[in-house]
Structure formats: structure tokens, C-alpha cells
Amino acid sequence: MATTVNPADPEGPADPGSGLGLRDRRVPRRPRSSGRSGGVAGSSWPWLLPLGTVLLVVLVYPVLEIVRLSFTDASLVTGEPYSVTSETYTSLVTGTDFRHTLQVTFLFVLLSVVFQLLLGLAVALLVHGAERRGLRGVVATRAVVLTAWAIPGVIIGVIWSLLYQETASGVLNHGLSLLGFSGNTPFLSDPDNALVSVIVANIWRGTALSMILCYAGIKTVPDQLYEAARIDGASPVQTLFRVTLPMMLPILTMNLVLATVETFNSFDMVLSLTGGGPGTATQVLALDVYDQIFRQLNLGRGAAMAVVLMAVNVLVIGLYVRLTERQEKEI
């Protein structure tokens, strides 16, 4: 048994997507590898088979199916006949709705990610600095910030919709009126405000994870480097830009990738905060996909939009995989 290098390739026949690299390339095993006790000892595939099947079902199949459906005029109602067409894509490109969605999404992602990274870094530096000084309450502070990560996105949306109440009884409006502004700011019913409000809530939500990743990055900087910087007479600002940030670069990049793809894919918070409105002012791409498919039942068009969403995912995930593998190699 141990010499049978390849048990039936589990991904093989069912997987036309060998471009995804799931197939075993049948590189012969080194002769002295540990397969002396027979059974499963020699090959990793029996161990990977269960998860492999699952990945096939929830990763490979959906991706292929979405691409296939995007070239049809199918509706969500299953069993109805449909025909193959590329109309879905041409209508996306020629129509103005989709361009608007992309613009909203771009602003949403760009501003969310930039502020999440900056604030996450700032909070991490603060927490780390306080920890180095041996101050109290550091763990509690970190925990409070992190709760924002743990609360389900839809509930964050509901919570912020309560904060954004537009009458004078709304707490943020009350706060603004104390600062001398109008106490009736239409946070969510004015199209321009709504997008800003959604972005602010999303920054609040995403800063937590960004903070914890930055914090982990700071922790990887060896103390000797700080010591050396101090002996060389570097100011704290110099130390930050010349020592800490360069050392954190890999994790900052990773953070950027994660925040970008998470924000792109997120629609739960927007759904419960504005539902994409008013009008389509906060209709981000993922929400639009949901809307097309499950509310308007336009499976074909929705799938075409989903393919665009996926293309962005693939780009960013590809970058992520590359970074991760480079990190692995550096060990």
C-alpha cells in the first residue's frame, strides 16, 4: 500500500477547475518517506479528502456555477427554462445603475479601509505603549475595542441606526447640538450623509480587527531594536518610522488585504443600517448582488454582478495567498 503513491485523485474527475490548482500533480514521493506501517501513512490525500470534498462543494462548485449563471437570463425560480446570453454583462456596462453601485462601493471601501488601518495602527501603538509602561487597564481597553469585532454585522447596523436617530432625541444629534450644530441632522435620510454615516459605522466596526493585527505586528519587533534606536538617540517619532513601521510592513500589507476584501464583501451591516437607501445612495456591490438575485429574482444579472465582486475577491485573495506564502518561506 505504502508504495501506491496516488490513491484515486479525489479532486480529479469532478473538478474541471484544475486551474485552481486543486489537482495532484503526481510528483513521486521520496523513497525513504515514512510510509513503513502501511495504511494511510504514505499519502496525505485520505486526510484531506473530507475537507477537500467540502471545498469542492462550497468553493469550486459555487464559483463555477456563478460564472455559468452569469451568462444566462435565469430567474431565481428554479426549474424554469432559461437561455444563454451575454446580455447580462453588456447591460451592466451600458447601464448607469451599476456604475453608480461601483462608485458607492469604491468610496465605501476606500474610506473604510484607509481609516480602519490608520486608526487600528494608532490604537495598537497606544495599547502597546501603555503595556510597555506597565499601566493598568490595558487588557480591558483592548477587550472593549475588540467587542466591535465580535458583534454580528447586522446588529452593528441596528445599533448604529439607533445612534443615528434623526430627531433631537437621537443621541448623536443631541451631541451635535451640544457642539452648536443642528440637532436634526438627517444622518440616514439624506443621500450624501447616509454614505458617510455608513462608512463611519463600518470604520468603527473594522478598526478592532485592524488593531489586533497591528498589535500582533508590533509584538514581532524585537526589543533589541528599540534598545538600539534608543542608544542611537532616536526620537519616538523616528523610532516609529524607522524601526516599528518597516518591521511591521508584512503585517500591515496583510491587514490592508484583509480589510479590503472584508469591506468589499460586507453587506450585512449596510442592510440593517440603511438597506442601501435612501434610494440607492448606499447600495454597495454585495448588497446590490443580494438585491438583484433575491429581491428582484434576476439571477442572471445578479450573477454577473457577483462575478465582478468575485473578480475583485480573486485579485485581492491572490495577493493575500502570495503574501502568506512568502511569509511562510521566510521562516
Partner: peptide, 13 residues
């Protein structure tokens, strides 16, 4: 790689 990618794929897809 597939495992890594699967983590990030939009649940909507």
C-alpha cells in the same frame, strides 16, 4: 491555497 482562498470568499457567492 484553496483553504486560504475559501476563508475569504464572499458568503454571498
Amino acid at each position: 491555497r484553496a483553504v486560504l482562498a475559501a476563508q475569504l470568499l464572499s458568503p454571498l457567492i
